[in-house]
Design a binder for these strands. Structure first.
Lengths: 347, 347
DNA sequence: CTGAAAGCGCTAACAC
DNA sequence: GTGTTAGCGCTTTCAG
């Protein structure tokens, strides 16, 4: 795949045209002070008009610098799902913005969950200065191994015990507490928790759910925890099955907005109204949450804080500093699905 | 930002440890046939256990190969909006999947629209083998200039007259025709078109809108074309203003689902019901379209075809072949917002 | 201030 | 089969 067209312009060409050496061109173009202003100007104009750009690969190789950050999105090969959760998609958009603004390039990789152990090669192979992993899923051990090898990395997820790697995430336990307390205050007693508690982030949300019960001196009924996949397709069936059996709850706390929406659809199909019959709270505050009918009461994860924080932590790690995991605040966005008529947030 | 930690393993280390030359290591690791099976095995095991990976930058530099594709998302610096349109977000996810599956790396760049002329440097600077640009917006001239310079590139958008560059896009005119014909068949006579007709893709959709009128021997009323920005925030105000003045239409064809949703909210706030009072058809078939209430009748763009087609066209271009722009079929997804009760597609 | 020369980590002729 | 050698395009000492 060698470039078939006319071979590209290189520094030597500019040097010849400007009547100087490549060293001078290099200096001029990298803003070094050790170049005569006139010479610099001539070179800059030449490079500009000829649309010459330095070869970044060669530059990196020689200088040892690297301003590329790899963003990894694990996926299950079994499901071969295309990336669909809007929250993760938004996260990618946010990261793209933040990295660009800070003069980094973003390498986006979807990797099969079975290949997780290999992603360190993005760093060891010199491809990227550091790695951002979106979602920790079931990869706790892989991630620990990676970190132990000294790969600069940040994981979007929950802080766990015995964790070598570093996470940035919203305070899932707080979020779970906020959501559940809100429902309890509204007078509901039997709150169904929806989500795959095998996932660390979801487990934390469930922990918050339990905490809220304790605070209100309510017992937690383990039967009210329905473990469904994060993936909407599979979840739908599972939810529908459960609901049709016996509706022994008066509220739902779903661990993602996608799940909340799926639940509401399933309920509606059974002739159950939200929020009149059953109140629902979601999680994430994706764009759809405001637009959906009923609009979704949900726990907002501060996406606009996440990008800068992730980068900041990663940068410190690249510099070799010791870093600690970071927790972002969540907030309750009250909308219609928990009983409010007004779509404005009031939380 | 030279790597602060222990310097990374390189090919020479593996060579020394295996008692061979770097050339042999290189051959063994790149699957060349010219190497003894035993030697290869020894080298592979060594590399595996030491977690060595070849430095891709150096490899590219030397071999002239490059399997990185740049994906560019233009944005308006004025708005400093974070990437929000779900359709583009999904497109990124789709591209990430397709590129990964084909063993490419994906470099994601958000670029300020003023910097569009500079994106060619991704190619000329050796950063990427080709460029995918998502959305042509107002950049027709910039894109033409880029293509004229011989940069391998594909633009997701509409085919225009006097176009040097190559596009892949859905058949916007057909989509506009399908949407409008559907509404006409339903008996509506005054269909408001919503969208920024300055944008090529939207212009094509409007062209289809006009064509549908012609087919049905209806006159096109230019007053029924409300030019609103693609961006939801700005659009909302504009739509609300228009609607409150005088509702002189009985249907809306919005050039994106986001716009459709915005329009429905605005109508609802005025006490106008969809689809009872006014029927609405959107465009894109984003995920939300099914979940929204009322669910959105919309024109589906075949995202799952887009990724492979874009890559295929780009690859041919990288190989130096001549390519033609490509048009993907659209389809009508009939749902509640145009008057159906049932969420199933019947298009 | 500028140039000559060495080499970043790797691959590809060319020898043997 | 394998080693030797020469660079890919650039930056950076080190002399001047």
């Amino acid at each position: 795949m060698r470039t078939p067209s006319k071979s590209k312009l290189q520094m030597a060409d500019i040097a010849r045209l400007a009547g100087v050496s490549t060293a001078t061109v290099s200096r001029a173009l990298s803003g070094s002070k050790l170049v005569n202003d006139e010479t610099r100007k001539r070179i800059e104009e030449l490079a500009g008009s000829l649309e010459y750009t330095v070869n970044i690969g060669a530059k990196n190789l020689r200088s040892g610098d690297n301003r590329t950050i790899a963003v990894v999105i694990p996926y299950q090969s079994s499901a071969r799902q295309t990336l669909c959760d809007p929250f993760f998609l938004s996260m990618i958009g946010e990261l793209a913005t933040v990295l660009t603004e800070n003069d980094y390039e973003m390498l986006l990789s979807r990797v099969d969950e079975n290949d997780m152990p290999t992603i360190g090669s993005l760093y060891t192979g010199g491809r990227a200065a550091g790695i951002i992993i979106i979602g920790q899923w079931h990869h706790h051990d892989d991630l620990n191994a990676l970190a132990a090898r000294g790969v600069p990395m940040v994981v979007w997820g929950s802080k766990l015990e015995q964790q070598v790697y570093c996470t940035v995430g919203s305070d899932n336990e707080l979020g779970g507490l906020q959501a559940t307390s809100h429902l309890i205050k509204l007078g509901t007693k039997k709150i169904l928790f929806l989500g795959d508690v095998e996932l660390p982030e979801v487990a934390s949300r469930y922990k918050g759910y339990c905490k809220a019960h304790k605070k209100a001196r309510l017992a937690v009924n383990p039967q009210l925890c329905l473990s469904v996949s994060f993936e909407a397709g599979l979840a739908r069936q599972s939810i529908a099955n459960h609901f049709s059996e016996e509706v022994n709850f008066d509220a739902v706390f779903a661990s993602s907005d996608l799940l909340a929406v799926t639940a509401i659809s399933a309920l509606n199909e059974l002739g159950i109204r939200v929020p009149e019959d059953i109140k629902v709270v979601g999680y994430d505050d994706i764009d759809m949450a405001q637009h959906y009918r009923p609009s979704l009461t949900t726990i907002r994860q501060p996406l606009e804080l996440a990008g800068p924080e992730i980068l900041s932590v990663l940068e410190r790690q690249i510099r070799g500093e010791r870093v600690v995991s970071s927790l972002l605040p969540t907030s309750l966005e009250i909308r219609e699905s928990s009983g409010f008529e007004d779509g404005q947030h009031a939380g």
